[in-house]
């Protein structure tokens, strides 16, 4: 091919700079990201100007590959923008459109500049498409990574929040489990439980699974491991809070938990008290209030 598309693109972008930028800003404004209220118009304009300026500088190097060295600053700016958009909660469409909406103004400018020269127009269009698509994809990639980081941090926070060990009485611990049990969480739960058994010198630990949505063979195995470890430390476990549906599923799956199991935490607690030689009794009926007043 005789005509270098990137040269055509450089010429057009430098020649029609003002027109392209203005048209792009117009598109961004009507694009909908402003309506969500997540970003102010001034900020959006500043971002667009920076990106466009850096794109022009990078293009001046004559390089057409978006991954090459001249595009380094532009890529960093785009990464910053899309990362902050991921945290601010922009939709993927909004983020991708930020770069992709630049295509329209550039193509229009190319069209106007090379009206008579079909070969130049095609070559320039091709170069512009390749470059802007690459940058758009890069933006999406960073956006995705940013979202994944957010999700990872959240799941870690959830894991930390949801594995408390509570002391119910002298020597009696409760472990209210909430949410799905996977092997990573079971590890944390087990360590917390065993450490609490040592710290509180507990004889009995009640594992309450009211908040566990499903119990399959894997979850049951995890539970059994925790119970076996607690037994090795010299503490007995009681399971409580198995919901009717879960009991059915467990039986149908053939899952067997060979431990004492009680319907509610209260029942389990009563059993634990009995095993440690305590009982709960109702005090003698309190004297009527009227009798007190007369005294």
């Amino acid at each position: 091919m005789a005509i270098d598309g990137i040269q055509v693109l450089v010429r057009t972008v430098t020649g029609h700079e003002a027109a392209i930028l203005e048209s792009w800003l117009g598109l961004l404004k009507s694009g909908g990201s402003l309506q969500t209220g997540r970003i102010r118009e001034v900020e959006l304009q500043a971002q667009a100007r920076t990106v466009f300026g850096q794109l022009r500088d990078a293009l001046a190097s004559g390089e057409s590959d978006g991954h090459a060295a001249p595009y380094e600053t532009l890529r960093e700016t785009l990464a910053d923008i899309s990362r902050s958009r991921a945290i601010q909660g922009f939709t993927p469409t909004d983020t991708a459109n930020f770069v992709l909406s630049l295509k329209e103004p550039i193509l229009t400018a190319l069209d106007a500049a090379n009206a008579g020269d079909m070969a130049s127009l095609v070559a320039g269009t091709r170069a512009a498409n390749r470059l802007l698509d690459g940058l758009g994809l890069y933006t999406m990639e960073v956006f995705q990574t940013g979202r994944e980081e957010v999700i990872g941090r959240q799941s870690q926070e959830i894991a930390e929040l949801s594995t408390p060990v509570v002391q119910l009485w002298d020597g009696i611990l409760a472990l209210p489990l909430i949410g799905t049990l996977d092997s990573a969480r079971t590890g944390v739960v087990m360590e917390n439980l065993l450490q609490a058994i040592v710290d509180e010198e507990a004889e009995i630990a009640i594992i309450d699974i009211t908040g566990v949505p499903t119990v399959d063979t894997l979850v049951a195995q995890h539970l059994l491991k925790a119970i076996a470890a607690a037994r090795l430390m010299g503490a007995d476990c009681i399971i409580s809070g198995i919901r009717p549906q879960i009991a059915q599923t467990m039986v149908h799956l053939g899952v067997e938990l060979n431990v004492v199991s009680k319907a509610t935490l209260a029942d389990a607690f009563a059993l634990a008290l009995r095993r440690t030689g305590r009982t709960v009794v109702r005090r003698a009926a309190p004297a009527p209030v009227a009798a007190d007043d007369r005294r």
Partner: peptide, 25 residues
């Protein structure tokens, strides 16, 4: 007096020592 780490290790090894009685101290 088994330590938590030891208990976890034994369970992971599949040795639940079912024939043994255990106590905390």
């Amino acid at each position: 007096g088994m330590r938590p780490a030891v208990a976890i290790t034994l369970v992971e090894l599949g040795l639940t020592l079912t024939g043994i009685k255990t106590a905390l101290n």
